[in-house]
Nucleic acid binder design. Structure first.
Length: 495
DNA sequence: CGCTTTTGACCTGCGC
DNA sequence: GCGCAGGTCAAAAGCG
């Protein structure tokens, strides 16, 4: 910026000198026929001067705007940390709260402006001349349960008791034990071991793909294939072959409802460096898995969860998704509690959901009721094209879900015309928020997603000049229309 | 020849 | 204990 200013002032000085020289020259010659020619030259020089001034002004404005955005991001990053405490304190005040976590990513100028009135963090954005914005927000909303919810909650020890970490830990442990249905002592010992835990936690990615498998940047070797019940399409089992001892495996199966949808389930932790594209996928899935594991276990206990990224590497390129028009759709996170997930908590990133202005939640019975949608994720795609994903996580018998969409109106809940809540959530907002805010890999993934969007100027529909906001706020709301509590991880779509 | 894929057998967990 | 389903193993086949 300073350099630009210097160059501009230098140019101005040169112009003034040249003007002076020319005028002197005219005087000396005294030739009228040359006067017009020289005047035109001077005029042209003045115009050039004006253009340079305009350029300088523009550059200065852009510089100020960028400064504001950096400030915004830093501010919201701080608020993200504060929100954990806010959520915690709110939970202490509200008995059996109904929690709602928002996580938005996408161009969302209108969304942001609508919520500006209630979100302090957005105040600084007022008056900014921004045509397009990328918004990444992390909001938490809490709801007081109605009587039905309370009954439901009381029947399930894993719900509601989130007023303190210790209580949460205790109830989560109770629920976990219940879900495991009196597992053996050996299993309990395994729970302490991170690797075992990570092995049990899975991240599933639903995406449209014509090829047999998604090209996620890793090398895989097929080691088995099975026809699973209820799906005529065989399920293929792959093992990571990048590292000789890499324990990561994935299952690939076509969706029975829509054969164009490929469901890829990852399990395990890479113990070797990954390519950038593989790291992108690994980080996103790892982050999702970390969320799941953070929400399902004691906060005092830490384990890596299903980390698909190498243990030893940083992942600055995580979530390196290619974006198409589908990026306008919000990623959706689901917590299915199918019985099949009881021993394998699974998060599903659904990259097939269409763009939606409101959100829906899904029960496991609705798990397959996805409407056809275009994600642009094809056999040629290296990475899913958009944060157009839905994330399911599943625990035991507690049917729950985190998600958004429009597909299932009967589950629609929209306190803000876009929010919905779903019954029987084993994950509390506190857990999710904790997980998100405390998990560096998730932050890394989101940040990388943003940088990808911003940096990927050539991607379809993406304006390289768009700006990014991190929005992390907390608010409260009542949701009396729902009879069960739930958590919603909401990645709002761009407007 | 080496690697990958295929495929039937085997193992394990869970529900009845 | 039995049957079922999911998951894994490993030998055989295929491929470049």
């Amino acid at each position: 910026m300073e350099e630009t200013k210097k160059r501009s002032s230098t140019a101005e000085g040169i112009l003034v000198k040249e003007e002076y020289k020319v005028e002197s020259y005219i005087e000396a010659l005294g030739k009228e026929d040359q006067l017009e020619h020289v005047k035109a030259k001077v005029y042209a020089l003045r115009e050039e001067n004006e253009r340079l001034k305009t350029l300088l002004d523009h550059a200065t404005k852009e510089y100020q705007t960028l400064k504001m955005h950096i400030f915004d991001i830093v501010q919201q990053d701080e608020q993200a940390k504060k929100s954990v405490h806010t959520i915690s304190s709110t939970l202490h005040q509200v008995e059996e709260p109904h929690d709602l976590v928002f996580l938005s990513l996408g161009r969302s100028s209108s969304v942001i402006r609508k919520e500006d009135a209630s979100h302090n963090s957005n105040k600084s954005r007022e008056g900014l001349d921004v045509k397009e914005r990328l918004a990444l927000s992390l909001d938490s909303k809490f709801e007081v349960l109605n009587s039905c919810q309370t009954t439901e909650t009381m029947s399930n020890p894993s719900l509601g008791n989130i007023s303190s970490d210790s209580k949460e830990d205790e109830t989560t442990e109770q629920w976990t034990r219940s879900a495991r249905n009196l597992k053996t002592k050996k299993d309990e010992e395994d729970d302490v071991q991170p690797q075992t835990q990570s092995k049990k936690t899975r991240v599933s990615v639903r995406a449209r793909c014509d090829a047999a498998t998604m090209n996620d940047g890793c090398q895989w070797r097929k080691y088995g294939q099975k026809i699973s019940k209820g799906n005529p399409c065989p399920r293929a089992y792959y093992r990571c072959t990048v590292g000789p001892t890499c324990p990561v495996r994935k299952q690939v199966q076509r969706c029975v409802e829509d054969m164009s949808i490929l469901i890829t389930t990852y399990e395990g932790t890479h113990n070797h460096p990954l390519s950038m594209s593989a790291t992108a996928m690994a980080s996103s899935t790892s982050a999702a898995a970390s969320m799941l594991t953070s929400g399902s276990t004691s906060s005092s206990r830490s384990f890596p969860g299903t980390s698909l990224i190498p243990n030893t590497s940083n992942n600055p390129h995580s979530l390196n998704f290619n974006l198409s028009d589908n990026y306008r759709s919000r990623p959706q996170l689901y917590v299915p509690n199918n019985s099949s997930f009881s021993s394998h908590p699974t998060i599903t990133l659904d990259l097939t959901a269409p763009s939606a202005s409101s959100c829906s939640l899904y029960t496991p019975s609705q798990f397959n009721k996805y409407p056809p949608a275009n994600t642009g994720f094809s056999s040629n795609s290296t990475i899913p094209t958009a944060w157009n994903s839905q994330l399911y996580t599943g625990y035991g018998n507690n049917k729950s879900l985190i998600g958004t969409g429009t597909q299932n109106q009967e589950y629609t809940y929209a306190p803000n015309s876009r929010n919905q809540i779903h019954p029987q959530q084993p994950l509390s907002a506190e857990n999710i928020t904790k997980a998100i805010t405390s998990d560096p890999s998730f932050r890394t993934a989101l940040e990388a997603a943003i940088s990808t969007i911003v940096g990927g100027g050539g991607v379809d529909g993406i304006n390289p000049g768009k700006q990014v906001y991190l929005n992390n706020t907390t608010s409260s709301s009542l949701k009396p229309d729902h009879d069960q509590q739930g958590s919603l991880l909401f990645l709002s779509p761009p407007s």
